[in-house]
């Protein structure tokens, strides 16, 4: 008897929206594949300190061990300074993932503030804010980043500032439109009628309901950011050598690639893996969040 009751309860119990989205995401093989790659990358990169010694493996040059092809000791070979490519790729991954995550956090926060203000208040405020964002959006993000780097100089912190600023307008736009789509709905009107403060309405009612497209944008944008960092470093305006970064490594290897192609093949594959995993996750989330694709 009691068994029946429990069964009935669990079947009647409405699955929460979040669970449904998670369920759909889990069924998407490509998205799960991306998720697994990303988790593995994060584990390898974040535990690097346990099996690699930064100074010995990444920084120390060894002229006797230049251009060694891939072997058991050096799975990805060594570069023109005799440094182990494997260790440099791992530490390069640290930088790429960190820059991606940090940039997106800042751009997301700033963009949400700007976009939420514009979307929620509308009217003149919206107009002014969005015209300013339009100006920023008229310049390709890479080029804004280059201009900021030109002014502040290269280096990790300046790259973080440059990328965060260049990514913010996109988030402002996405957040604004997400908020506009929720704002006019009845439950917001109800909250307002109850006398809830604006700040609380935005934070507790609007953002949780508008978060879907924002998360998708964040994931895909992190993928783009990793590409842009690599690109900037490749043209010498990003992370500077000797710090290992995938784009910097490609620039270093370029002059030697005729004879030692692995120098440019390996860092590229690392970039592709990181970016691909984020793109797969982003696409999976978008499909999972799309109510038209409900099955």
């Amino acid at each position: 008897m009691s068994e029946h009751v429990i069964n009935l309860k669990s079947s009647v119990k409405k699955r929460s929206q979040l669970k449904a989205i998670f369920h759909k995401f889990k069924k998407n093989k490509l998205a799960m594949f991306g998720f697994v790659i990303l988790v593995i990358l994060i584990i390898i990169v974040s535990t690097a300190g346990l099996y690699l010694d930064y100074e010995a493996d990444v920084e120390t040059q060894d002229m006797k061990a230049m251009f060694l092809g891939p072997s058991w000791d050096h799975p990805f070979g060594t570069d023109q300074f005799g440094r182990d490519m494997f260790a440099r790729i791992i530490y390069g991954g640290r930088i790429s993932l960190f820059v991606g995550l940090f940039t997106i956090s800042i751009a997301l926060t700033l963009g949400s503030l700007i976009g939420a203000t514009a979307g929620y208040y509308g009217g003149k405020i919206d107009n002014i804010i969005m015209r300013i964002m339009d100006v920023f959006l008229a310049i390709p993000a890479t080029i804004i980043a280059i201009a900021i780097v030109a002014s502040l100089g290269t280096g990790l912190i300046n790259i973080l500032i440059a990328l965060s600023i260049s990514r913010t307008p996109q988030f402002a736009r996405v957040v604004r439109s997400a908020i506009l789509s929720v704002k006019e709905q009845d439950f917001i009107e109800a909250a307002r009628a109850c006398g809830t403060k604006d700040r609380r309405i935005i934070l507790r009612h609007i953002i949780p309901n508008a978060i879907g497209p924002i998360i998708v944008q964040a994931t895909l944008s992190m993928a783009t950011t990793i590409l842009v960092v690599a690109g900037l470093s490749f043209i010498g305006l990003g992370i500077q050598p000797p710090t290992p970064e995938w784009g910097t490594m490609l620039a270093d290897g370029k002059s030697q690639m005729r004879y030692y192609p692995y120098l440019v093949v390996v860092p590229g594959i690392a970039i592709v893996l990181a970016v691909l995993s984020l793109n797969l996750i982003g696409d999976g989330l978008r499909d999972a969040l799309d109510p038209r694709l409900k099955n």
Binding site: L30, A223, L227, A230, G231, F234, G247, L250, K254, M257, R258, P261, V264, V265, G268, I271, V272, V275, L276, N279, L280, D283
Partner: peptide
């Protein structure tokens, strides 16, 4: 298409130089 969106353009360029030029 997924792979192409994830490949950095400049790396694709390097690979093409490696293959078609060198």
């Amino acid at each position: 298409a997924l792979l192409l969106t994830s490949i950095p353009g400049f790396w694709l360029g390097l690979m093409m130089i490696l293959f078609f030029s060198l």
